[in-house]
Amino acid sequence: MLLEIVSPEGHLFKGDVTSVTVPGVNGEFQMLSHHANIVSVLNEGSIKIAVPNLKAATEYSPKFTRNDKEQKLMLAIHSGTLEMKDNKIIILVD
């Protein structure tokens, strides 16, 4: 599935991912490929992104931290909004 993360400063991430875990207002939740359409408000916390090949992932902002053990990228956010539709996730973050 395609993930795009945008902040007021510009694009932070754009690429194919295998899963995304976000801090929703009712708790953390995960989206996998072909998840049902969803719109959600995000709370302060971390977005966790599983990419097919972490070592090959180069198109992301230096604001991300890498967890090589879990093969994930993580981004701390204050708040945000998420939309998933047609196997594409767009996240707007502060």
Rank of each mutant, 00 (worst) to 15 (best):
L3G: 02
E4Y: 05
I5A: 07
I5K: 04
I5C: 06
V6W: 03
S7H: 06
S7F: 00
S7C: 01
P8F: 03
P8A: 09
P8M: 03
E9D: 14
E9T: 14
E9M: 12
G10L: 00
H11E: 13
H11G: 10
F13P: 07
K14D: 04
G15M: 03
G15I: 06
D16N: 14
V17I: 15
V17Q: 03
V17L: 01
V17H: 08
T18N: 11
T18V: 11
T18P: 04
S19F: 08
S19P: 05
V20E: 07
T21W: 06
T21C: 13
T21P: 10
T21M: 12
T21R: 12
V22C: 02
V22W: 05
P23W: 06
P23F: 00
P23V: 06
G24T: 07
V25I: 15
N26S: 13
N26Y: 12
N26M: 13
G27E: 09
E28A: 14
F29Q: 03
F29E: 03
F29L: 02
Q30R: 13
M31C: 13
M31Q: 11
L32K: 10
S33R: 12
H35M: 09
H35D: 07
A36T: 14
A36Y: 09
N37T: 14
N37E: 15
I38Y: 13
V39Y: 05
V39I: 14
V39C: 08
S40Y: 07
S40K: 09
V41A: 15
V41F: 11
L42T: 01
L42A: 02
N43V: 04
E44V: 06
E44A: 15
E44M: 10
E44F: 08
E44C: 05
G45E: 07
S46R: 12
S46L: 12
I47P: 03
I47N: 08
I47V: 09
K48D: 02
P52H: 04
N53T: 09
K55D: 15
K55C: 07
K55G: 10
K55A: 13
A56R: 06
A57M: 10
A57T: 10
T58Q: 12
T58K: 14
E59K: 11
E59I: 01
P62N: 15
P62C: 05
K63T: 01
F64E: 05
F64I: 09
R66Q: 15
D68R: 09
D68I: 11
K69D: 13
E70V: 10
E70W: 00
E70G: 09
E70K: 14
K72F: 08
K72E: 14
L73N: 07
L73W: 00
L75K: 00
L75A: 02
L75Q: 06
I77R: 00
I77N: 04
H78C: 11
G80M: 05
G80E: 02
T81M: 12
L82F: 02
L82R: 06
L82W: 03
L82S: 01
E83P: 07
E83I: 12
E83V: 15
M84G: 12
K85N: 13
K85Q: 14
D86I: 04
N87T: 01
N87S: 07
N87I: 04
N87H: 09
K88S: 11
K88Q: 15
K88C: 11
K88I: 12
I89R: 06
I89V: 15
I90S: 11
I90P: 01
I90V: 15
I91L: 04
L92A: 11
L92T: 11
L92N: 13
L92E: 10
L92C: 09
V93C: 04
D94P: 11
D94W: 05
